[in-house]
């Protein structure tokens, strides 16, 4: 929850928000049994946007981004991802999932496969790319996250930060147009948070559309173009990072920021 300083200058030349809509969520509602987790969510994400979703635990932020690739099912409202309407049709769901990359808090790497196999599995089986080509792509992305030398190891032999970078590379191998991050640094030691954040920043610099649930407010301040604050299943406040941090409007946001940045 600390505010980690990002030392280097961020290259903003490619970080441009286009008019094209990447994700459109209208009047979305979700219940767990009788519990109303997400209430009337309306959110439009343009291509190239870098959105940080913050909020106290249990506020529904993870559930929100998990609805976008149908890991959770919403009961009311509409979600359109890249022009595809998310319905219970399995073909649509698989299509959206192969276009949207997701990075989890606990990495969810496949422990019985090597790093390289983790990265080539989905391209080979879902995209039907030849193995050789898939391996070349995988090595390209492993170099990008700076661990090509670990390609033949198993996830259990890597540190948490390395595992999370592999997870990012694994998602990128599917050439997604949107990346979702579900608390990617929350399970990491402080020394490893930085290496993962650096990878995420590089991704942002290349113009990737990103939705990040995170408590890294330094990242939000410097990389995000929009910060969304959620509480009790609702979007309470959203703004540009500067405004959001320096001039929060609602009392709930002020309280949250004072607690998270107060020490």
């Amino acid at each position: 929850m600390s505010e980690l300083a990002i030392e280097r200058e961020i290259d903003r030349s490619k970080m441009q928000v286009s008019d094209e809509v990447a994700i459109e969520i209208t009047n979305m509602n979700k219940w767990y049994g009788a519990f109303h987790v997400l209430r009337d969510i309306n959110l439009t994400v343009q291509r190239g946007e870098r959105i940080v979703i913050a909020g106290p635990s249990g506020s529904g932020k993870s559930t929100l981004i998990r609805c976008i690739n149908a890991l959770e099912e919403h009961q009311q409202g509409q979600i359109v991802v890249d022009g595809t309407v998310l319905s219970s049709d399995l073909k649509n769901i698989d299509k959206i999932r192969s276009e949207v990359g997701m990075v989890f808090q606990h990495f969810n790497l496949f422990p019985h496969l090597t790093i390289l196999e983790n990265c080539t599995l989905a391209p080979i089986w879902v995209r039907k790319i030849p193995r050789k080509e898939a391996e070349e792509t995988a090595m390209h992305f492993l170099e990008k996250v700076k661990i090509p030398e670990q390609a033949d190891k198993y996830p259990g032999q890597l540190s948490g930060g390395q595992q999370q970078r592999v997870a990012i590379a694994r998602s990128l191998c599917m050439m997604p147009r949107i990346m979702l991050f579900d608390e990617p640094t929350s399970a990491l030691d402080p020394e490893m948070i930085k290496e993962v954040l650096d990878t995420m920043i590089e991704l942002a610099e290349e113009g990737m559309t990103m939705l990040c649930v995170t408590h890294e407010m330094g990242f939000a301040r410097q990389v995000a173009n929009r910060v969304i604050f959620m509480d009790q299943g609702q979007i309470v406040e959203q703004n540009e990072p500067e405004e959001f941090f320096n001039n929060p409007q609602s009392d709930r946001t002020k309280l949250f920021l004072s607690q998270i940045l107060g020490h």
Binding site: N69, A70, L71, L90, D94, K95, R97, S98, V100, G101, M102, F104, H106, F107, N108, L109, F110, L121, A122, W125, V126, R170, S171, M174
Partner: peptide, 17 residues
């Protein structure tokens, strides 16, 4: 762990894969 199912799902693998 449930994460293994989610990891597979999030990559677009179908049920049998």
């Amino acid at each position: 762990p449930k994460g293994q199912y989610e990891g597979a799902d999030s990559l677009g693998l179908n049920y049998w894969q």
